[in-house]
Nucleic acid binder design. Sequence first.
DNA 1: ATCAATAGTGTAGCCACTCTAAATAGATGT
DNA 2: ACATCTATTTAGAGTGGCTACACTATTGAT
Lengths: 313, 313
Amino acid sequence: MDERQLRVLRELGELGSVTAVAEALLVTPSAVSQQLRLLQRSVRVPLTERAGRRLVLTPAGRALAAAAIDVETSLARARHAVEEFLEEPDGEVSVAAFHSAAAGLWPRLVRGLAAPGAPRLALADEDVSQEDFPPLTHEYDIVLAHRLDHSPAWPRTVSATPLLHEPLDIALPAGHPLADKERLTPHDVADQTWITVHDGFPLMATIEAIAATAGRRLRIAHRINEFAVVSEVVAAGGGIALLPRWTARPHSAVTLRPLSGVHARRHIDALHRPENATRKAVRTVLAELRSAAAAVSGDGGSPETAEGSDVHR
Amino acid sequence: MDERQLRVLRELGELGSVTAVAEALLVTPSAVSQQLRLLQRSVRVPLTERAGRRLVLTPAGRALAAAAIDVETSLARARHAVEEFLEEPDGEVSVAAFHSAAAGLWPRLVRGLAAPGAPRLALADEDVSQEDFPPLTHEYDIVLAHRLDHSPAWPRTVSATPLLHEPLDIALPAGHPLADKERLTPHDVADQTWITVHDGFPLMATIEAIAATAGRRLRIAHRINEFAVVSEVVAAGGGIALLPRWTARPHSAVTLRPLSGVHARRHIDALHRPENATRKAVRTVLAELRSAAAAVSGDGGSPETAEGSDVHR
DNA sequence: ATCAATAGTGTAGCCACTCTAAATAGATGT
DNA sequence: ACATCTATTTAGAGTGGCTACACTATTGAT
């Protein structure tokens, strides 16, 4: 008893003759007759009977034909299941991010997708080194990742949607002498006590570039990945640090100053496996992320969020 | 996208490897792999992906596998649909009957099957000549039919369950001189004015036998098929008639007297197509009909219905 | 590093299944 | 009685899915 046989039986019930079924299914009446014979073999009561020169369903045949409708319905649903999955506007979308991107973008993302009918977010923070971002796309639909300007591009196996090209500024405690200058050079900052990320994390390459340009080894006192913690330690006079301009939460006792002389910018990209963008819900989240990023960087940001573009704080 | 492919996909989701699916479905891994490739061809996003040396479902694959469960469920239901139809205790059973059998048996049938869970009855009266009873089994699950003792048996294409072997008595108006005799002979009744059924209806053969035995042509004044009407006309003095002993409703102004000298009995049988008895609901109704018939004929009839066996009225 | 074990995929060929074509049988209506 | 319509049977062709086997890739052990 397979789909084809049930289909034939059902059509016979609705069309009332083998010939009509054959025409509907684009086969010969012989094929229909044979399918019916096979189906009959699997059942112990007659499903069809002759009515004159026509063939009609018995009550048992009608009972089975009714069940056949369910089979065809579920098969039709299965045939559309993938499309529906792709077009579902409110599907679940998992988003991973490192801390500063998470802190800077997720609040806007959550607010922007709060409406009913919007994708359901599943957020997770993941603080990994640069080469570990792409594999995360196997676990999450979208991975917010960052890399420095001249670091190797993301592998071709993942799609990358650029979100931010974010300057990295020097974070100074309020009242620090260097805060008087509008811009700082590697030479200006090379002799300071430093707070940096752990080895292997993206910002480290910029720290090394500063040291190379100034021709000195930096004095690195602390290793702190989390920028909120960094801000607090900078404010407390523990040293100076490199902080992203837009995604690190401003601290009232920390002043940011742009750095000249080295490329001090990072890319924040949304990584995802290419086929993932066929899902409407994923595309919606990506669009919302772009809009959140534009707001954060000050391009058309809402008044509520304009503070993010205020460098001097 | 057919059942087999969906089955393979679903099993892959649950078992987690092509080899395990192959073992579960009793085929080689190669066959599983080929089925998956075919399924993939019908869909524009990947359904599976490599995880090390294993193969796992993508989110789209999981969405389709979920739909596959519905397909398998409905197919399993279809495979049992006929059995369920046959075993359904409360299915609808259509019963046709000629008038006197209907009047005599249906009230008991309806009362006996009033309980919830009993077959649902669909009753219909059909007053046809003897040869037209068997074809009615194409329209009704059970056909109550009657034939005279020596008339040809029912064709082998239908099953016949004997219900009653019912004497045919002479109906006389109360106070008629013949009512004084305990039994009547053809000779006694041949000179009376008669009320008979229409030509072609079963009882007519007995009327003809009476005429033949007595050696006379009967004086047939009226042609009335419906026994309730016959009783009224007999009571009013319109003539005498042949009435079934048990199934015709007794009339207070009509006396029944048994007839000797000719075979004056009819068979009342329940006809049905043989495969119809595979339905539990039909068997239940047949059993209830036998019990109703036994009660009507006085074999273990309940007090409430004992009047049916009272010939002298 | 190398090797063995494990997992999945590709290919060739076989087998079974389902279709078509044509002949047959039965029913209907003129 | 005959032409027409309908369903079935049979034989044969074509398709498709399966197995066997070879191959690639990954993993873990020595």
